[in-house]
Design a protein around this nucleic acid. Structure first.
Lengths: 109, 109
DNA sequence: ATAATATATCGCAATATTACGATAAATATT
DNA sequence: AATATTTATCGTAATATTGCGATATATTAT
């Protein structure tokens, strides 16, 4: 059917999956890395930096905005994007909860 | 066109995206959590635990196997799946490199 | 007011993902 | 040998994602 059965999973599982999905594209990883490197940037910077069409970059930015990891401030005709630190830290915590709390990965078959 | 332009990104960006994509589904998160909780399990356990069809679980297991985070040992008619610790730690490192090395998330617009 | 600049959104085509029934393959049990 | 058990794979339908050109919108500059 092609649609994920979210109703059979926990809130936490769905939430983590949604976050990971938003991050799971090389363009979006590159966008985040560029924003971090430059502290902030506008859409057009990314168009030139990554070599993807403006519409495509805008769409990727939207997906990152959807999970809140970046936020955009309107500055004249352009929009200045930067990391939302609170969300960034929260996601880091969410990932750590998954990767560090689940440590007893020892016995195998 | 619907196909990611991997050639314009770095190896590291593509690799991280591939890893995240494999993890970015609630069923696969649930599978990993169950394996960790039980130390190991077989496909049928997951079918009963998650309530997805056997073919679907098998497909999700395959995607997790593809990034190496789990491995399966044949035991009679069943296959015992468990976490591959080396890969698990490597992925943790990869994520930390992204989320911890990139810390200066301060100045905003 | 007009033109330039920057971004968002629409619509589309190509491809990928999700889920499942059916079936194949391989071992275990009777 | 026949049957049961367990998993993998094939084929298919429904939906989602990716990327882009075209266009709408909104602000700035002339």
């Amino acid at each position: 059917m092609g649609v994920t059965k979210t109703e059979i999973f926990t809130e936490q599982q769905n939430s983590l999956a949604t976050t990971l999905k938003a991050l799971a594209h090389p363009a979006r990883i590159a966008i985040l890395q560029y924003i971090i490197k430059q502290n902030a940037c506008i859409c057009n910077d990314l168009v030139e930096e990554l070599g993807l069409a403006q519409a495509t970059i805008s769409q990727h930015l939207k997906e990152l905005k959807n999970i809140g990891i970046i936020k955009g401030n309107i500055e004249g005709t352009s929009v200045c994007y930067c990391i939302d630190e609170n969300v960034w830290q929260q996601i880091k915590k969410e990932l750590n909860a998954f990767f560090i709390d689940n440590v007893e990965v020892d016995k195998c078959c």
